[in-house]
Design a protein around this nucleic acid. Sequence first.
DNA 1: TTGCTCCTCACGTCACGTGAGGTGGC
DNA 2: TTGCTCCTCACGTCACGTGAGGTGGC
Lengths: 259, 259
Amino acid sequence: MREEPLYTVGELAKKCGVSVRTLQFYDRIGLVSPGGRSEGGRRLYGRREIIRLHQAFFLKSLGFPLEEIRDKLMPAETAASLMETLKRQEETLNGQIRYLQDAVALIRQTTAEIERSGDIPLSSLMAITSAVQLGHSYAFVLKYFKKDDVEKMVGHAFEQENPFTVMGDWQAMIDRLMELHRGGVDPESAEGQEFAAQWWNMVASISGENPDFLKSALSAGEDIENWPDDADGFKVAIRDFVGKAIEKYIRDHGIQLPE
Amino acid sequence: MREEPLYTVGELAKKCGVSVRTLQFYDRIGLVSPGGRSEGGRRLYGRREIIRLHQAFFLKSLGFPLEEIRDKLMPAETAASLMETLKRQEETLNGQIRYLQDAVALIRQTTAEIERSGDIPLSSLMAITSAVQLGHSYAFVLKYFKKDDVEKMVGHAFEQENPFTVMGDWQAMIDRLMELHRGGVDPESAEGQEFAAQWWNMVASISGENPDFLKSALSAGEDIENWPDDADGFKVAIRDFVGKAIEKYIRDHGIQLPE
DNA sequence: TTGCTCCTCACGTCACGTGAGGTGGC
DNA sequence: TTGCTCCTCACGTCACGTGAGGTGGC
């Protein structure tokens, strides 16, 4: 065995940008416990714990409650699985960056509008508030879907080897959707149908045997009208693009939906 | 008077991307109360409240506690003051975007390192955790300075016409610092001394009569060694660049510091 | 010895969320 | 009338933070 660096709570807290209290708390609830203790009873953290802590923080930033993370996060100690996690984290951060950039664009539009008209466009102001809100807690899957559905998605995510993969796949798919929709691609075109196939497979793999979830996930939450009015058109993209694309896809492939 | 659109809690919540419960809660604590009620006692929000809500959310995103916002946030209802707020919010979001981009760069470096060596660099992993942490709660001024100093800065911020201005100025200055430091600019050069003058004026205007704060703010927190190890070199930038620049500035201008 | 970090335990806090039981408005 | 939104009140919860009183290690 090679020498392993060991950190005390204070050192680890500093290096990870959190408080000692937080780490002590995480130990208490069993989320991330030290690998061992010193003679005097001080917490000592090693490689294994640092990796787990990184993963736990990432999942927390996606909006998962600590209890769920504690119960379901499996150790991912190989270099390969860590790479996978880092890749997903990068995707997530890029998505978050794009969200914030949208918010900035919205602000610029709004200031231009105020300069032009001298009047305050309230709906723009509310749209900014909403956009910033979304940018901050980037677990927007968790915001857009209703609780039961999210539970199922999360459950499914944690059943996989790497929960980050599943969350990242949603992320990537939604980014792709926005790209297609903004680019004005026809949902019935080859490109649109390729997307429909991906979406269908994703939903089918998550819903598994459960037709109820299948139904609600296909329309991306079913109660789409209750979604918050977001910056620009994710709602519209889902309704107009996914709706039409999936409709054709199902027709073409003779898929039978449970009514 | 022109017709004003009035929103119920549900409508407003949807448009701002928050829950009805949150708005009811904000009313209860007196943070944002409806402008009036309907006959049946339902909350009705107008223009004034929407503007206040937007400002309150922005300050909250900077890390201010709700109670403080409630007590100190003055209404900013003119188009001009709203423009100012939006400008600061844009700067803040851009800062946040840059932070996240740094985090992404760090992740890419780390994956490259893993691919090269096959080994997991723990310190990089902790640096990522720390960077993401900072990107999420962008009130990094509040993280970097100690509590008493922050209280003073915040107090000063709220004494101004527009608290966003002060926070935004810090933001801009720190961004400028990072730029100079990364660009390898000499702190004793003309450019460096220009920056030193700005920094000095900022600190002097905040510290006012208070020499204690002046001292600690000049070294940017005084207990700089206790700062978290951030992604790359904010700490170093402060110590090496600001330290040297201010030293020369004070010498050149014959400024007397209280010991 | 001094200063700093760390320990546990009990309690506090911040920003909401959750029903329960009822009313309002198209 | 039905379905939906909204009301208040009391209580719950999540993720920590705050002392108090003490020990450990360079």
